[in-house]
Design a protein around this nucleic acid. Sequence first.
RNA 1: GCCCGCGUAGGGUAGUGGUCAUCCUCACGGCUUGUGGAGCCGUGGAGGCGGGUUCGACUCUCGCCGCGGGCCCCA
Length: 452
Amino acid sequence: MASFDRPRGTRDFDPEEMADRNALITRLREAFETFGYREIGTPTFEHLDLFTAKSGPEIVEQLYAFEDKSERELTLRPELTAPVMRFYNEELRARPKPLRLFYFGNCFRYERPQSGRYREFWQFGAELVGAPGPAGDAEIIALAEECVQAAGAATELHVGHIGILDRLIEAVDTDEDTHSELYRLVDKGGEELTERLDEVDAEPVLAEAIEDLAVGANPTIALAGDEDELRERFGELLAEVRGFSDEAPHLDKRLREAFDEATAEAIEAALDELATTLGHLAGHGVDEVHVDLGVARGLDYYTGVVFEVEAPELGAQSQVAGGGRYQLAETLGGQPTDTTGFGLGFDRLLLAADVETEEAPARAHVVPIAGTLDEATSVAADLRAAGIPTTVDLRDRSIGKNLDYVDRLGVPKAILLGPDELEQGVATVKDMASGEQTEVALDELVGELSSD
RNA sequence: GCCCGCGUAGGGUAGUGGUCAUCCUCACGGCUUGUGGAGCCGUGGAGGCGGGUUCGACUCUCGCCGCGGGCCCCA
């Protein structure tokens, strides 16, 4: 056994895994860039309070937090949204709006490792700053969807609006802590929610509505129709959720019958925004959405449309991306700024991704024979200069051993270079798949190996 | 933090309270210093760590660590 091993929850990546990862990274970068987003980078560690400001002091126990030699309270970043918004507040806020940013980096959380959950993991994400309306929300959702599809994975898109649940829960007459507890229970679903609502004496009409959202009133909606049609279907949806009669004429009227004026208006506005967003999504070519008004995401800072992208083939841990609209710049001490964005779990997406990568480390391997290493090295250098990945034997091995080596690595061409070849100014090029050998003039080697 | 399962060479495995721990694969060398894939020969490499029981522990036992699964959590 080795004397040292990896820290818990971390991984090493062998060349094949790394090739797969890089292939997916390339595809995702392309997806972001196709939408006009530009990549930014932030430090691997930040001030601890950046994250406590965003998420509260409880998160410290999940952080790799430490003190540096000048007693600064720091932490490895557990996520990238807060650093990106910090960067925005500090330096990017004067850029033309809307500002389209994306990022990729490793993050760290001190958690119990599980399948698809590591202590060091990689995240992609995008933030769209200064696009206040549903058009921006739709763009971000479409981009997230595009990322997962670019990976070659089947997707399932869930879209909701936090405002609906927000209003309902706020209308429950209880304290802040209980409110956030209710969010968590809604996300989780099940008996506990019912019991808790009962304990806090929620009005029956509210309790029922909240429970309905929790069980997932999430019919699939084809985005073929126009906005009016969507709105109409929403009416049906809410009717279903609330148990209203289908005969009731107008959505807003039904709302007002059930809730107080302010609540009804707010819910109506949220539904309206959601409907408009879905209308725009259709324009992006996204044609199937699960409308899920119970998407809570467990995140306090969301303020509008929220969504999740799943890759169903991953089973229980199928959520690969999630995001929505939030007000974080202000929380972090900046100007109030409309932002919508998402995060994408790279490691998890890779599990569902369909990537093919070249395994051979080079396209040619030069075999020196009987002391021709310098000439062989020079031939390799010429090939490399022409962009052909090339290796040279470094062990002074026999031709047979070299061919065996080349074969094992999957390098397609072996270039034999001995005294006989040098005398004639040629090299013997062997195609490893067919076994065919041809003599090629040294100054034609690049051309010969380029055409492939 | 809790519950369940697992832990023998780089990978996959067999077996045992008692000689130097089995086999496959792998890496390196040789048979073969001008020609690969097969074969043969050789070399290398292991019972996670620590304590206990025992004359003796890889084997039994306890703790820890790690891995897998579930719970909690998931900014």
